[in-house]
Amino acid sequence: MIATILQKQCDVAIIGSGPAGISAAITLKKAGVDNIVVLERESEAGGIPRHCGHIAFGFKKYKRILTGLQYAKNNIEEALNLGINIQLNTTVTALGEGGKLSLVSQQGISELNAKRVLIATGTREKPRSARFVSGDRALGIYNTGALQGMVYLKQKIPFKRPLIVGTEIVSFSALLTCKKGGIKPVAMIEENPKPTVRWPIYYGAHLFGTPLFLETKINKIIGDQRVEAVILESAQGQKKSIECDGVLFTGQFTPESSLVRMSHIAFDSDTFSPSVNANGQCSDPAYYAAGNVRQLVPEKGRNAYFYTSDNPPNAVNISGMCWDQGGEVALNILESFSN
């Protein structure tokens, strides 16, 4: 059910209805914890996979290849069938001591006292601003997440001939999303001598006829109202201008962890994640964290225990890994109740 009345307390509040959050909710519910609430700030549940109208999701869980959209839908249906309460359009505005959450929803501002809280707020890509890229601040500069939202959720496109920056797994998703939207990228660039992930990028770039320039970075973005061109720079310092009407910055994931950063909870300022023990428990024992907010998708150059360019991942593993971790942390939460 999608609840409309806000409750004042619960056993477990889960922040975020992506794979980690929903998996935890289902695990807890099946284990007999009834008073669970999933808090979702968007008007639809499902998290980031919901933006991904392309494959390949859910293989591990459903034994077949799904689009992100179908995968998210399946997850949410399973949760709703179990009677899990998912509150949409509900934003957590502060994490208080001992599980006291400040919320805003269509019912206004309220507080929720949760015995345990699972932080499953996911991850996002680093925007152009935080990458210190030179040039104009024109229309047409986005991350993959924004592009996917436009193409799959709103049937709109923000550009027709963009430059794609980055060669991570998500950059492959960007190619698929462009294909879906009828967008023809002018090129894909990577600062390093090799793509971050090899097979899908070579395969994707070849499949869609997108030139891949390695050891190439942006020297300057040019555009008055809208992006008009980008000056590219090679490792040898050679520059060339390429006409395009947008720039898509892909990857360099950073946890969506501002709530934690602004709170009393210990924060790892190297990974931008909440500090957790082996159980996924935070410094305030009422709080746990799971999924990409714990930097499961490592930022390029960081200690990448999950995948590297020499150890290419399978796209399905990313959301699958969040799903697994959500379930594991849920069991730890369960155990904490019996202690």
């Binding site: 890509e125 925007p127 935080a130 991350n143 924004a146 939202g149 436009m150 709103k154 709109k156 969506e256």
Partner: peptide, 14 residues
């Protein structure tokens, strides 16, 4: 803000 439109650009486009 911090995400520079990662989450809300689609809704804003609409």
């Amino acid at each position: 803000g911090r995400c520079q439109g990662f989450y809300c650009s689609a809704r804003l486009a609409e």
